[in-house]
Every structure is written in structure tokens, then in C-alpha cells.
């Protein structure tokens, strides 16, 4: 019995089934339906963009980790792949591959590795990449190929914004929109955001696997619905309905997959609710009165910046402080 070397470690001696790899794998699986829809809508070129984006992100992360940070290989935790897919989802299907590579360098290089890699970045890397592209290459980022079944190459949000600005009444704009098509995915847009139903399927999976909680997505979308609902109720001739806002643009993609990024969202449930309400409100402000038709990416990045503050102010409810104190 003596020559056996026993392992000594502090308690606990068992571990839950949850680990980073499994959770990232679940996120990838949850993104799969949206990818399938985008391929159906835009053809194989959508898949090529996503695959290329993933390849670039992984390569950039490996390169920086190997030669600049000189740390261990971190590809195994799958986070670079998730960022790659999300970045691809935020690009139009006809974007030149060279631009995808630039986006990947910005997303991983500047958005993530500059801060030291996974877990240390304050901003969502995929969104850093997207917003950079939006500012640097506005034309390439906003001219979408016509998706199968879509009415035109312009996104519903851009169309509505243009039309409303030109003074057309809401009723006229609504004629060109079909809510069922928007829900299923027959609309133009970045390749991952077009099908709401596919994204909601992914949300369901993430909830079932307990990867994320409902708080952020529901509060983001709820705030957007409330905000746009009030405006719509006040003046239905000038503002689009809440349903239109929820089904258009990156609302669902952002709320389910981007805003819920662990690294850049708050640590407490209460904090998550505050953060999500902020995202919903800022998104609507930009959509209704800002220069851009879509505001989700900016809203998430702005709230990302506030996360440390939220975490400082909002503490979890501690045991033994609520009821017993007078």
C-alpha cells in the first residue's frame, strides 16, 4: 500500500460537467441553424465567408499567442472559433475575402489579444471587428447581395430609415415588409442575422444547456419592444411597430449571441438586467434618431465599457442580509 503515490488536493474533489470547451461547443452548435439559413439564402459564398473568417481568427490568435505573448496555445478553448463565426455572421455575404482577413485581425488582434487574450478583453471582439469595418469600409459593409426570397438588396431597417427620412408614411413602408418573411429569413442583411427563427432555435439550445440565462436576451428585446412600442403608440404614422424592430437587423443576433458574451457582460443577474436594458435603449435611440439604421453593435460596445462600473455597483444578494436586518 505504501509505494502507491496518493494524490492530495484541497476539496472539492469532484467537478461539475461544465467546462469552457463544452460551453463554447454549445454556442457553436446554437449558431448552426443560422448558418444553414444563411447558406440557403445566399448560397455557398455565405459559408465561405464564415469559414474564412474562422480560419483567419484562429490563425491570428495562434500567431499572437505563439510569437508575441509567447504563451500556451489557446485554440483548444474554441473561443477564437466562436469569435470567427460571430464575425462572419456580422458581414455581408458578398464581402471580399481580403476585407474579412482585415476584420479578423482587428477583431482578434486589437479586440482581444491586445488585452491579454480570452477573459481580459473589455469589448466583444467580433463587434470590435464589425464596427471597425462599418466605419472603415461603409460601402462594402452595407451593400448586401439579394437573398433568396428577399424583396431587395437593402435591409428592411435601411429601407425604412431612408423612406421615413424622405417623408413617406409608415403605412407605405409597411407595404414592402412581410413580417413572416422577416421572421423566417427572407430578408437582406449580414449573413447571420437574417433568420430570427434560426437564432431563436439557438437561444433555446443555449437555455436548455444552461450556457446562458434568459436575462440578457429577454431584457434587451423587451426594452427594445417597450421603447419602440411607446413611440409607435404615440405616433404610429412616423414610427415603425415594435414587431418590425424586433424582427429586423441584428436585434436577435445581438441580444442572444453578442450581448451575452461572458467576458464582456456583468457578473450578477441584476447587473445583467441593467446592462441589457442599456443595450436595448441605446439601440433604439440610434435606430430612431441616429445616423445609422442599425445601432445594436454600438449599443453593445457602449454597454461593454460600462460593465466594470456595473460590476462594482451591483453586488449579488448576500445570504443573511435581507430579511433579518431591521
Amino acid at each position: 500500500m505504501e509505494n502507491q503515490k496518493l494524490v492530495i488536493s484541497p476539496a472539492p474533489h469532484v467537478h461539475g460537467k461544465n467546462d469552457t470547451r463544452r460551453m463554447m461547443g454549445d454556442v457553436l452548435l446554437a449558431l448552426l441553424p443560422a448558418l444553414v439559413v444563411s447558406v440557403l439564402a445566399y448560397g455557398w459564398q455565405a459559408f465561405v465567408v464564415v469559414a474564412f473568417s474562422v480560419a483567419c481568427c484562429v490563425l491570428v490568435e495562434w500567431f499572437i499567442q505563439r510569437f508575441m505573448l509567447r504563451g500556451e496555445n489557446t485554440i483548444g478553448n474554441l473561443s477564437a472559433i466562436v469569435t470567427g463565426v460571430l464575425l462572419g455572421f456580422n458581414l455581408p455575404a458578398n464581402i471580399p475575402l481580403g476585407l474579412v482577413a482585415i476584420a479578423a485581425v482587428v477583431a482578434i488582434g486589437i479586440g482581444k489579444m491586445t488585452y491579454g487574450g480570452l477573459g481580459k478583453n473589455p469589448f466583444n471582439p467580433a463587434l470590435v471587428g464589425r464596427v471597425f469595418m462599418l466605419v472603415a469600409f461603409p460601402v462594402a459593409m452595407t451593400s448586401f447581395p439579394e437573398a433568396v426570397g428577399a424583396v431587395s438588396g437593402a435591409t428592411p431597417l435601411a429601407m425604412a430609415k431612408e423612406a421615413l427620412k424622405a417623408g413617406a408614411p409608415v403605412s407605405e413602408v409597411l407595404q414592402s415588409v412581410n413580417f413572416a418573411d422577416m421572421f423566417l429569413g427572407a430578408k437582406s442583411g449580414s449573413l447571420g442575422e437574417i433568420s430570427v427563427v434560426a437564432l431563436l432555435l439557438g437561444f433555446g439550445w443555449l437555455l436548455v444547456r444552461r450556457v446562458i440565462s434568459w436575462h440578457i436576451p429577454v431584457c434587451v428585446l423587451g426594452t427594445m419592444a417597450l421603447f419602440s412600442g411607446i413611440m409607435w403608440a404615440v405616433n404610429p404614422a412616423e414610427y415603425m411597430s415594435p414587431l418590425f424592430h424586433l424582427l429586423s437587423g441584428g436585434a436577435v443576433l445581438g441580444a442572444v449571441f453578442m450581448a451575452t458574451d461572458y467576458v464582456t457582460s456583468p457578473m450578477t443577474k441584476k447587473g445583467m438586467v441593467i446592462y441589457a436594458i442599456g443595450i436595448g435603449a441605446i439601440t433604439m435611440l440610434i435606430r430612431l434618431w441616429g445616423p445609422y439604421p442599425e445601432g445594436m453593435s454600438f449599443a453593445i460596445l457602449i454597454m461593454n465599457a460600462l460593465v466594470p462600473l456595473i460590476d462594482k455597483w451591483v453586488r449579488p444578494r448576500r445570504f443573511g442580509v435581507v430579511k433579518t436586518q431591521k
Binding site: N18, G119, K120, V263, P316
Partner: peptide, 15 residues
């Protein structure tokens, strides 16, 4: 590395 997933905060019975 810590990915700030908040699972520990969620699990802590003392808050």
C-alpha cells in the same frame, strides 16, 4: 483562465 462566466457567483450559497 477566468472567462467571467459568473457560474461561481451563481453557485455561491452565501452570495
Amino acid at each position: 483562465v477566468c472567462i467571467r462566466c459568473a457560474k461561481c457567483v451563481e453557485a455561491c450559497p452565501m452570495g
